[in-house]
């Protein structure tokens, strides 16, 4: 078995998962919880840095050319340059950060810590860019970019860790890990 073919196909299928699930949202109260961040963290949690970085990069590339793959079925180059672009670009960092827990710290704690770290980096970069590009005062930036997401981020990380552990168990049994 040539592992090169497997790597290509698994990257493609993970990209497809990002495209299929990324635009969806779950109604959990006044603000719907988008699944975009969740699915990106999940893809990064069940594959190596190389595979997840490629998948996330392809996802952003498709979005840049206008395919409706981002949260809420949005797409377009404007989103990668607009006020919320920081959140999108920092998804690329999910691959190296969460990837640390794929081979080296491959246990529950590694998974939890890297996911929290990725989430913090995502919100920080997103908010800094939001604040700069909209020329907001710092407090307004934090109120718009961080506070509304604390509850949903915690929920997302919990879901990601539970699902990733289950998927990794199957990967370990069937040698599907890439």
């Amino acid at each position: 078995m040539n592992s090169n073919t497997q790597r290509i196909v698994i990257t493609a299928v993970l990209t497809a998962l990002l495209i299929a699930v990324g635009p969806l949202a779950v109604n959990i109260g006044p603000i719907p919880m988008t699944l975009q961040t969740l699915i990106i963290a999940l893809v990064a949690s069940v594959s190596s840095t190389r595979v997840s970085l490629t998948a996330i990069g392809l996802y952003l590339l498709l979005g840049a050319f206008g395919l409706p793959v981002f949260a809420g079925f949005k797409g377009g180059f404007v989103l990668l340059a607009g006020p919320t672009a920081g959140y999108l670009w920092s998804f690329l960092l999910f691959a190296p950060i969460i990837g640390l827990s794929f081979k080296r710290w491959a246990n529950v704690w590694g998974l939890i810590v890297t996911n929290i770290l990725a989430s913090v980096v995502n919100l920080t970069i997103g908010t800094i860019w939001l604040t700069i590009s909209m020329q907001l005062p710092v407090e307004a930036g934090i109120a718009a970019g961080i506070t509304p997401f604390i509850l949903s981020s915690t929920l997302k990380i919990t879901v990601v860790v539970i699902v990733a552990l289950a998927v990794r168990q199957v990967q370990a049994r069937t040698a599907l890990a890439f």
Partner: peptide
């Protein structure tokens, strides 16, 4: 969970 595992299985079949 079933979505991911099913997708990875399909990927392996396709490979």
């Amino acid at each position: 969970i079933p979505l991911f595992i099913g997708a990875l299985q399909r990927a392996l079949d396709l490979a």
